[in-house]
Amino acid sequence: MLLQILVNGLLKGGLYALMAIGMSLIWGVMDIINIAHGSFIMLGAFITYWLFTILGIDPFLSLLFSVTFLFLFGYAVQRYLINYVIRAGAFITLILAFGIEIFINNLALVSWTADVRKVKVSYGAANFAIGDLVTIPTVRLIAFGLVILISLIFFLILNRTNLGRSIRATSQDLDAARLMGVDVAGTYAITFGMGVGAAGAAGTLWSILFPISPMMGGALTLKSFVVVIIGGLGSMLGPILGGLALGIAEAFGSNWFGATYENLIGFTILVLVLIFRPKGILGGTS
């Protein structure tokens, strides 16, 4: 049973990490706390749902569509909306993101109603057992693999390409980067697009595992936020560590103290991290 709880926690952590990685990227590079993150996840989930329901496209294939669409959408949002206020500071961008969230959620609510929907794939609840000890849900395992893949891609882009160098440069010193000829607005837009694209991937996976509805985003934003804080900004490893830490803590916590305390456990860890390692597990103590 303990092993099963550990596996549950790890896999849930993987899902949390996948949700949070895009938020972490955007926050780390641009200092934007993207409150609308959960809404972008919701959009990814609905893209998968509609492609599956209307055209019969397999959810894993629709990953390509949801990521591409949300990348472009995120790019446009940053380029034509957030870029106008980005110099005004974190608080203003926070409010703008809040507005975007309200807009997206309510547009979704009006267009698709509040119905709870489900992507009904035969393998949604697929699993395999290792002996008698542990049952592993396959889709969650794939989500786990996907988050490692995405973080690897992000890592390679940030560290091995010119685009990555521009992103890091703008993140470290905006004015110097601009003086060196970096197209700051464009870089920002691409970064935001990447983060939102990752949210799209999370949405697709989420839609296979859980029922979806237009108002699902808020809770996901909150979880992503906790994961980002716990993991710390500035590294692709941060959200993974934060997600796993939260997933495992919730799994054991809800086993020992009862399921009602799941959120309490998450936020207790958040507070402890803020007290003792204000920059996150990976972020140092200063």
Binding site: M1, Q4, I5, N8, L11, K12, F210, A219, E250, A251, S254, N255, G258, A259, T260, E262, N263
Partner: peptide
Amino acid sequence: FEKYAEHTSDFNSILTKIKA
């Protein structure tokens, strides 16, 4: 006899307990 938070989406730990 287990209480869970409203809107809980993940029942894995509860299910593990049920199995146990």
